[in-house]
């Protein structure tokens, strides 16, 4: 009986996971890098949403956190990532330490 319950549980988690994955194709948020700033500087998104950074500044930048790193974004270039885990994600420009931003993933 226990095993049956367990397998049902696994099955229901599996079923739950489907819509979660589907919602990964959710919203895309845009962050503009300009004037040595991330705008908006703070952003609240849902799990599965995508954030895209576009460098409209005159110098190269990065969007770097513990869970993602855009690498060098030359002026005019964009980079995006999908956020799969809940929590606060502070990030910064690897080149310019005063440039910071944060994403709250709900």
């Amino acid at each position: 009986m226990k095993w049956r319950h367990a397998s049902q549980l696994v099955l229901s988690i599996g079923l739950l996971a489907v819509p979660l994955t589907a919602s990964a194709k959710g919203k895309t948020y845009h962050v503009v890098i300009s004037g040595m700033k991330f705008t908006p500087q703070t952003l609240t998104v849902n799990v599965g949403d995508t954030v895209e950074w576009t460098n409209e500044d005159i110098v190269p930048h990065t969007a770097t956190s513990k869970i993602f790193d855009s690498g060098t974004l030359e002026p005019g270039k964009s980079w995006k990532t999908t956020l799969h885990r809940q929590g606060a994600v502070p990030y910064r420009c690897h080149f310019h330490p005063p440039m910071t931003g944060s994403i709250e993933v709900k």
């Binding site: 040595m36 700033k37 500044d57 005159i58 310019h96 330490p97 005063p98 440039m99």
Partner: peptide, 19 residues
């Protein structure tokens, strides 16, 4: 406009250099 766009970079460099 280009000079205005350069200004924040110079300000950030100054801050960074002071640090």
């Amino acid at each position: 406009a280009l000079l205005e766009k350069v200004r924040p970079a110079i300000a950030t460099h100054l801050e960074h250099a002071k640090k």
